[in-house]
Design a binder for these strands. Structure first.
Length: 604
DNA sequence: AAAAAAC
């Protein structure tokens, strides 16, 4: 099957309201360069182009880019309000949402789902939910991802991030040829924990169904059989934790030859967990001109290095303030006390909480052993409590989490396995029985409550032994305008100078020069889509041919950001890279489609 | 010093 046949599978046309170009297929006609030539194609300029006459067959116009750009420039000179109004809107948006962004030719954000230009099979699913507007991550990430660019997103979980990479992934898959027998996934999502994998596949199932995509979830601790069946049946989307995936790759049960869209979720966490060798091993299996989206809550050196090495020409989006911040929907209460007081205080607290109608409570402790101990003692005393940590069998973890989710068991005691990304609805209380080893984890833990627009309460037992963290914690509390107990301030005072090595952790780099996407001279430089009424391009996401062919690989690796070892022989052992050098062309890597008609070069 | 992850 040729690539061109595949494009129209399942009615994959973009949103086609009032297409100026006739058929939906034509609406995907592309004449904006990916990060290169002008991406401007608004209807307002239709008049300047020699279009086809009614009744005549639609011919591909000859684009004279310099004339077009001149026209656009003049247009904005003559209609200054059009441009400035929109740019102001974007600046205001970025400022309000505390978004900073850097990179070349950054597409403008979108502010409504309609502007996302998603195909019908995605829109119909979106409409089923009662969401009002995209989250800030989605606003910025969708246009970037849909235009085929690489993306580094610095953002906390629980802000719509999963959908932020999943919808473009689904669109991407729908622009690829069908899987053939023996093909591995087209989209690969790597996540640090099994629970997260299960969560992500929920989303991919929900939104992939309408275009008949199949997803597979690959992680350890569970029988291989069903996972293999899902893969062998043909899964366009694969969500995986690294270990089991490598197992399957090494044993040849699946491959990544067809993978062209890669997501690294919670990259900082994965590095923390020592997944780097595994990540490398997996990435070597994927063709280097793939589209890659990397997500991380922080931007430390290690993550930066990973991004430089594996993401060519990426756009970086920082969502949220540049300092460590907690969700403001959460009431944070810090109880400075001694270690031996904790248990009594916990019981007292839970007694109060259980009076509430909504009482779902997540309790964090320091160690797996402690999680077990406390859970056992509480269970003995009749509390509806379960525990979850990494030494439990996956089955037990699943049970515990399920019973917690559906409310059968309102109290869950957990280690940090549950601190990040876990999305359980209506958790009303988080209790930090032990303060975590770093305040970053604190923010993640309490973030399990107050999700979306809900509110929640976080109680934290803070002992003199945690004094090193006091200053970070105070900073978080101050930022969130919380009441700060004098005892905590006293501890902070005493520990002045104790906190070591904090510098830089929250310095999110990359902000640099052009923070705002449409700023200054870049307005016409390509890829930008104007969401302003009629001037919005229909084709904002149909860029030109992807420049990232294999030919450009050399430029890639010889550039300032070294690729480490060259991909050509980059097999560090185990199994050899074997991305598909044949069938899939670089242009089909992105969701961008080349114009219909004769292929632009012999390569196709 | 802990947590997470493949068999």
């Amino acid at each position: 099957m040729s690539r061109y046949d595949s494009r129209d599978r399942r009615g994959t046309s973009g949103r086609d309201g009032g297409s100026r170009y006739g058929s939906s297929r034509d609406s995907r006609d592309s004449y904006g360069g990916r990060g290169g030539g002008g991406g401007f194609s608004g209807g307002g300029f239709r008049g300047s182009m020699k279009g086809s006459q009614p009744g005549e067959r639609l011919r591909k116009p000859k684009w004279d880019m310099s004339t077009l750009q001149k026209f656009e420039k003049n247009f904005y000179k003559e209609h200054p309000n059009v441009a400035s109004r929109h740019q102001d809107e974007i600046r205001r948006f970025h400022k309000e949402k505390q978004i900073t962004i850097s990179g070349k030719s950054i597409p403008n954000p979108i502010f409504t789902f309609d502007e996302g230009n998603f195909p019908d099979y995605v829109m119909s699913q979106l409409r089923r939910n009662s969401w009002q507007a995209p989250t800030s991550i989605q606003s910025q990430a969708w246009p970037i991802a849909l235009s085929g660019r690489n993306l580094v997103g610095i953002a906390q979980t629980g802000s719509g991030k999963t959908l932020g990479f999943m919808l473009p992934a689904i669109v991407h898959v729908n622009h690829q040829p069908y899987l053939e027998h023996g093909d591995g996934p087209i989209v690969l999502v790597l996540v640090p924990t099994r629970e997260l994998a299960q969560q992500v596949i929920e989303v991919s199932n929900e939104f992939g169904r309408s275009s008949e995509l199949r997803s597979a979830c690959v992680y350890g601790g569970a029988p291989k059989g069903p996972q293999l069946r899902d893969l062998e049946r043909g899964a366009e989307i694969c969500i995986a934790t690294p270990g089991r995936l490598i197992d399957f790759l090494e044993s040849g049960k699946t491959n990544l030859r067809r993978t062209t869209y890669l997501v690294l979720d919670e990259a900082d966490r994965m590095l923390d967990m020592g997944f780097e060798p595994q990540i490398r091993k997996i990435l070597e299996q994927i063709r280097p001109d793939r589209q890659t989206l990397m997500w991380s809550a922080t931007w430390p050196k290690e993550v930066r290095r990973l991004a430089e090495e594996f993401l060519n020409d990426y756009i970086q989006v920082n969502i949220g303030a540049l300092q460590l911040t907690a969700n403001h929907n959460i009431l944070q209460i810090i109880d400075v006390c001694m270690d031996h007081e904790k248990e009594e205080k916990l019981v007292k607290l839970l007694n109060e909480i259980m009076q509430e109608k909504e009482n779902k409570t997540l309790i964090f402790v320091e160690t797996k052993r402690k999680a077990d101990d406390i859970a056992r003692r509480m269970k003995r005393d009749g509390w509806p409590v379960l525990s979850i940590h990494g030494d439990k069998s996956q089955q037990e973890r699943d049970w515990a989490l399920n019973d917690f989710r559906n409310g059968r068991n309102p109290i869950l005691i957990a280690t940090d396995v549950a601190s990040r990304g876990l999305d359980v609805e209506d958790i009303k209380f988080v209790i930090n029985f032990d303060y975590p080893t770093c305040s970053e984890d604190y923010v993640h833990r309490i973030g399990r409550t107050g999700r979306a627009t809900n509110t929640g309460t976080a109680y934290t037992f803070f002992t003199p032994g945690n004094a090193k963290q006091a200053s970070d914690l105070v900073q978080v509390l101050r930022e969130a305008k919380q009441v700060i107990s004098p005892k905590l301030l006293q501890l902070e005072e005493n520990s002045r100078g104790m906190r070591g090595g904090r510098g830089g952790r929250w310095q999110r780099g990359g902000g640099g020069g052009s923070r705002f996407s449409g700023g200054g001279g870049s307005r016409f430089s390509g890829g930008n889509n104007y969401s302003n009424g009629g001037y919005r391009s229909q084709n904002s996401f149909s860029g030109g041919s992807n420049s990232g062919s294999y030919g450009s690989m050399n430029g890639h690796s010889s550039g300032s950001s070294s690729m480490g070892k060259p991909y050509q022989n980059g097999n560090s052992g185990g199994f050899k890279p074997q991305w598909n050098q044949g069938g899939v062309t670089a242009a089909s890597l992105t969701s961008i489609q080349p114009p219909p008609g004769p292929p632009p070069s012999g390569k196709y």
